[in-house]
Every structure is written in C-alpha cells, then in structure tokens.
C-alpha cells in the first residue's frame, strides 16, 4: 500500500507536466492576444510590451522560460493586472473559495446521503417522491436562479442573513451561509440520486437477504451491511466534485460578492491573460489529481476486494 501511494504520487508529476504544456500552447493558439485593444497600439509601444513579457521570443524559448519558473513555484506576472503577479491573485482568492466549497460540499454530502438513503428505504412513498422532487429541482434550476431566490427570502423578506459580502472583508461569518447553500444545491441533488439508486441496488443484493435471514433489524442491516457497498459510487463522484467546488464558482461569487478564485477562470480567458489562465488551470488540476488519488485510496479502505500493489 505504501509503495502504491508513493508510486501514485510520483505519477502525478508527469500528468501535471502534460497538462501545463498543453494549456500553455492551447491558450496561445486562440486568436487575439493579451494586449489587443479596440484601438491599435503604435508599433513601437507594442514591440516594447512584447519585449517586456518575452512574447517576442520563439514559442519554444517562452515555453522553456515558463516551465523553469513554474518548477520554482513562480506562475509569472499577470499580463493584465499590473499590481501583483499570478501567485498573489491565486493564493489570495483560493482560500476563500476553499472555505466556501468545503462548507457547501459538506452540506450536500450530509443532506444528499441522508435524503437518498431515506428515499431508498421508503421507496415509492411520499418521502421518496419529496426528496427526488427536491433533487430534480437541484439539478435543473441553475445557480443564478437559486441564489436570488434565497437572497430574496432569507435576506430581504426574513432579514435573517446578509444579502452578500464576505467575512474577510469584515461582513461577518453569516455571509458564508447563503452562498454555501446555493452552491450545495447541485451536488446535493446528484448525491441524493446516486445514493438512492445505489442503495436500492445494494438492498436487492443476496447478502442483504442473508442479513435479513439472520434476523437482523432493518436499521442495522442498512447501516452495518448496506452502507459500505452503496457508498462506492458516491465516493467516486465526490472526488472531481470536490475539486470543482473548492476552486470556486463564478456565478455564486458574482451574486454574493465573494473574492474567490472562480472569477479568474472566466476573466483571464476573456483577457487572454496567458499566465493567469495557465495558473488557474494548474491549481485546478493539482487539486483534481490529488482528489482522484484520495478517491482511489478511500475505495480500497471501503472495499476489501480492492488491493493495490
């Protein structure tokens, strides 16, 4: 197992190198550049800027220079924001997105698994229909609809929570709640549906019949015998979902005024801000690769039939 973990961790390195290389070249293939404006800049100015950011060098040299910086942990200067470099923007906003994401995914795990299990155990009753109806709402209603509705009800009508803001800006910890619930909705829905179907599958299996024939209570059958097996699909869903949610959501950040990482995914692309684009891609892929690795380890902890050598 230890050997496997070390091998997997080493395997992450080439994966990341490939991702960085691909995104480095792909962003440069896209038409337009970071300094294109409505009004064309004078030739001399343009050449000066390009020289400053080494854009006048051959692509391979630029690539080598960039890789050298990245390996030392420097993601380079932003081509658009002049005050700070890419490292600063990412590591200032990432913790905010992470806090929000962790809270959101915790909410969706707790409510998703419990309502999915209830739905499976009480299949074809009102409990089942209610939680699955809620899940369909969660899947089909977009965030930019859920967010204002929650703001309207809980902030404007009831006055329980602030409409927007963020605690690092001095707006109080309550600002986390509404965006977290909003963000939790989609994953809650998917987890609830996954849990329900996988629980139903497990409850139909032979070993559950054996447990019943042994005289076990239904509650202990569900928690002792059915839980482990039915959690496998949820675990594999959670890996990428977690990576996605803690790297921020542009919609939720905009609606609730949160200084998160999500907006950089969108803005950097519009701006052709090459280094910032590749920077957020690197952060996202590091998290994703680590999550997938954790999923595999958790899998082997849950299922004794899976062993890694």
């Amino acid at each position: 197992m230890t050997k496997y973990i070390i091998r997997r961790l080493l395997g992450i390195i080439p994966t990341l190198l490939i991702i960085i290389t691909l995104s480095f070249f792909i962003v440069r293939v896209a038409p337009g550049g970071p300094f294109d404006t409505e009004k064309k800049l004078p030739e001399v100015v343009m050449r000066n800027i390009e020289a400053k950011y080494h854009l006048d060098e051959p692509l391979v040299v630029q690539y080598g220079r960039y890789m050298f910086d990245v390996l030392r942990g420097d993601l380079g200067p932003s081509f658009r924001y002049k005050d700070h470099d890419v490292n600063f923007y990412i590591f200032q906003s990432l913790p905010n997105s992470m806090i929000l994401g962790v809270i959101a995914i915790s909410i969706s795990i707790i409510f998703g698994i419990s309502s999915g299990m209830l739905a499976a155990v009480k299949q074809n009753t009102w409990v089942d229909y209610l939680s699955m109806a809620l899940a369909v709402v969660g899947i089909s209603v977009p965030l930019f609809v859920i967010a204002p509705v929650l703001q309207y009800v809980f902030a404007m009508q009831l006055g329980w929570l602030p409409t927007s803001g963020w605690f690092t800006n001095g707006d109080g910890w309550q600002t986390i709640l509404l965006p977290a619930v909003t963000l939790a909705f989609a994953d809650f829905a998917t987890i609830a549906r996954l849990t329900r179907s996988s629980m139903l599958d497990t409850l139909r299996s032979d070993y559950i019949r054996t447990a019943k024939a042994k005289g076990m209570r239904s509650s202990s059958i569900i928690f002792k015998h059915a839980m482990k097996g039915s959690m496998l699909p949820i675990v594999s869903y959670l890996g990428p979902a977690f990576a996605g949610i803690i790297t921020g959501s542009v919609v939720v950040e905009q609606v609730f005024r949160i200084p998160g990482l999500g907006k950089f995914f969108v803005q950097s692309s519009f701006n052709r801000d090459y280094t910032l684009i590749v920077g957020v891609v690197i952060v996202y892929s590091v998290i994703l690769v680590i999550m997938n690795f954790i999923v595999d380890v958790v899998y082997s902890l849950l299922d004794p039939r899976i062993t890694y050598k």
């Binding site: 070993y207 054996t210 042994k214 002792k224 097996g229």
Partner: peptide, 20 residues
Amino acid sequence: RGNKISMVFQDPMTSLNPFL
C-alpha cells in the same frame, strides 16, 4: 429468523457480505 429457522442460499459467492 437465523435463530430457530435458518437458511443456506444457492450462491455462496454473493450471499456473504463482501465488505465485512
């Protein structure tokens, strides 16, 4: 169940819980 009347099923491969 399991105390006074107990059962042995057809397929021993699936009748035992693989996770325990």
